[in-house]
Design a protein around this nucleic acid. Structure first.
Lengths: 162, 162
DNA sequence: ATCATAATGTTATAAAATAACATTTTATTT
DNA sequence: AAATAAAATGTTATTTTATAACATTATGAT
């Protein structure tokens, strides 16, 4: 089971998460001959600022703040970058939150399950074949052919249980 | 496994679904001493008009059309009924679609999984303990304590595969 | 250098959801 | 039954989320 849950909820050097994510993104875009432009990269870094999913307008606000002196980044710009990053599988959308989060292992097979802590707001991603198998099996009993899945679990992360 | 998938995707006498749902709702509200007012009932019936999830503004439009002669039902009214019906477990929200669907077995234990057909738009609900067990197990490997789950599967229903 | 394509800037608007307060309806108390 | 409290609905305005449409700029290919 591929997961970043050992990191996401716990104290860690988050700068390393960011640089690692950025490196993966650059390599992946290079391979695919698509352009990780400065704006797209800035949106990506903003989303990766933490392990908490961020709404589109949170991204707009953050980017406007972090841009000197005051260059307003407008919603269409952010949405376009989001669209690109989603297409490339570099980020995910959590539909139960209308929010976006960086993918810790882009390019891999994805059987996405998100574990969202209602206390601290952090979300970890798991790629659990076992769970996907259960989904497919459940669906097959209804003769339903699975194409994609949205699995978002809300509860308490290990830190917030203590 | 409790499911309405044998009905939802297939040709059937949908009037019976509606009256059955309405009867269950009345009994349930009576038991709980909460009021299924005319407006709430109208919203409920509008949602139950088919097995396709309906957006809040679709409900507004439908109700405005079906009200004679032209009595505009406004969004807050609809949202308040939706809130009530959600609280009572009479409908569910599909967050991947921003839409609402009637619950075929309210009052029961709910381990909700929705199977949404991308072709015909119909959605069936399954209450699959097996799948919930897999969710809990996956989460437990991350020491995550599950409180609620959103599982929405998109694919092709049996009818639309043919 | 020229052209086509892609990306971004900009303005406006659509779509989804809720806040705030007025009014009406229903239930409760006297 | 009248008075009161509580719940539900009506109404206006606004917030939040997302996209359409078109202008401009940057990038890559010929």
């Amino acid at each position: 089971m591929l997961t970043n849950s050992r990191i996401a909820y716990h104290h860690h050097d988050h700068k390393r998460c960011i640089t690692a994510a950025l490196n993966r993104a650059r390599v992946l875009c290079d391979d695919r001959q698509v352009r990780l432009t400065p704006i797209r990269e800035a949106v990506f870094k903003t989303i990766w600022a933490s392990h908490r999913p961020l709404g589109a307008y949170d991204i707009v606000d953050q980017m406007t703040l972090s841009t000197s002196p005051v260059k307003r980044i407008l919603p269409p710009t952010v949405y376009r970058s989001i669209e690109f990053l989603l297409e490339q599988g570099l980020i995910h959308r959590l539909s139960s939150l209308n929010a976006y989060i960086g993918c810790p292992f882009p390019g891999n097979q994805h059987n996405d399950v998100f574990l969202i802590c209602r206390q601290c707001g952090s979300a970890a991603e798991c790629s659990a074949e076992q769970l996907t198998a259960a989904v497919v099996q459940t669906a097959s009993r209804a003769n339903f052919k699975v194409e994609s899945q949205v699995i978002e679990i809300v509860g308490l992360c290990p830190e917030c249980q203590a």
